[in-house]
């Protein structure tokens, strides 16, 4: 299942730069990639060809689940800058 239909209902003001910065060396050797399925916005996807973790930070719901779940603490996680990121209206 793809959460795109859900994410289309969220109001975002995305930044130009990512507030989520994975450690590429650690991610390359990661076996379970818990970030790929723990994220409620499917922000993380392993790109096999590029051998790199794709980070669609624009979809981030700012929950922090990836930060806490990553067993290697490999995601440098901060909030988006002020005025950026999600704005909930009906939650």
């Amino acid at each position: 299942m793809n959460p795109d239909d859900l994410l289309a209902k969220v109001k975002y003001k995305p930044d130009n730069v990512s507030h989520l910065i994975p450690n590429e060396d650690i991610c390359k050797n990661c076996k379970n990639r818990v970030c790929e399925y723990i994220c409620p916005a499917k922000v993380y996807e392993w790109d096999k060809e590029k051998e790199k973790l794709q980070v669609i930070f624009e979809n981030c719901l700012e929950c922090g689940a990836c930060r806490i779940s990553c067993p290697y603490k490999a995601i440098n996680w901060s909030y988006p800058k002020a005025t950026k990121g999600i704005t909930f209206k009906n939650s």
Binding site: P3, V10, I38, P40, A41, K89
Partner: peptide, 29 residues
Amino acid sequence: PPYEFLEKLKNHSIIKPLLKDTEIKEYSA
């Protein structure tokens, strides 16, 4: 993924009738 659990819950035979004809206004985590 967490949204799949929620989708299954929404489609549970006991819950589904409560949600008939609704539209998603917002999704949050």
